[in-house]
Write a protein that binds this DNA or RNA. Structure first.
Lengths: 146, 146
DNA sequence: ACTCAATGATACAATTATTACAATTTAGGA
DNA sequence: TCCTAAATTGTAATAATTGTATCATTGAGT
């Protein structure tokens, strides 16, 4: 089983360190279930080549995620999303305030050059779509089963 | 890929600040397609040595150009002429990007247990705050006059 | 003399580069 | 099957390069 693609969007202009961006986006994709427990991430060298950065920078991000028990780095094997995310991780994710989450989102969108009007409109659109989907069939599908 | 030569002609007696001259000439060379998107500029220290000036002065010029989105300065990596993708591709990528970003944000917020109404309201609030902040305290590059 | 923009000096943070190394997997051959 | 060598993976250490932040100095205009 090969590694996930792990499409990351780096913004070299954001002022946020690259390793921080990697950390944040892996966390985000885990929270959004784009990444799931057990998934294998790209090797430090592969991801580095993909992102055109030095593999030490990837290793740094992986090390931070590893210390946070979000991923498990195994020398000679690879890196994997932790099978059972420790309580404090999901707890932290849940306790992350909506305010902070929203600020991060808006700032990132602004950073990418979108206007406040565009952002507002897109949020309206997506919430509308989400709302419609919820009414029809997806109401209970958000909870993780098993 | 080494940096561009970037031959600049400074006039120390013109009364025009050095950093302004650098800003203007980079803009000019970009307009004349001597510089092209993606080109790497000399490092602040290399250009400073070449021009026999302090590297802070180059850094200041680069900062102004960076704020004007003309170049992208990246700590530890270098400075580059901003990439501007072809318009027809650009618009699609922009929309996909914002769409993806917004979807992630909304999904994460929903997952944390917030309602669509709360999310909408928070986005409105934060964009309003951001808008106010921009009007008051954002310093603009006064030296880039036309 | 005062003021303030321009410039200089210094310390700092992020990234890259290079190299070496240990653990693990993989591939082949005996 | 078992063993070994090579390849792959993450780890680590160090130095060098790059832009950033902050404060000090300078100098021309008033």
């Amino acid at each position: 089983m090969p590694e996930k693609k792990l499409t990351l969007q780096l913004d070299f202009h954001s002022g946020l360190p690259i390793y921080t961006q990697i950390v944040n986006q892996v966390q985000s994709q885990l929270a959004n279930e784009i990444l799931k427990p057990g998934d294998q991430l790209p090797t430090v060298r592969a991801l580095a080549e993909e992102l055109r950065i030095n593999f030490n920078t990837v290793a740094r991000a992986y090390r931070i995620l590893d210390e946070a028990r979000i991923i498990s780095t195994q020398q000679g094997r690879g890196t994997f999303i932790t099978e059972i995310p420790p309580p404090e991780v999901s707890e932290r994710l849940r306790n992350e305030s909506l305010s902070e989450l929203t600020l991060r989102f808006i700032n990132e969108a602004l950073r990418l050059g979108f206007s406040e009007r565009e952002i507002s409109q897109m949020v309206r659109d997506k919430i509308q779509q989400e709302s419609n989907r919820g009414e029809t069939s997806r109401r209970e599908s958000r909870q993780v089963k098993k």
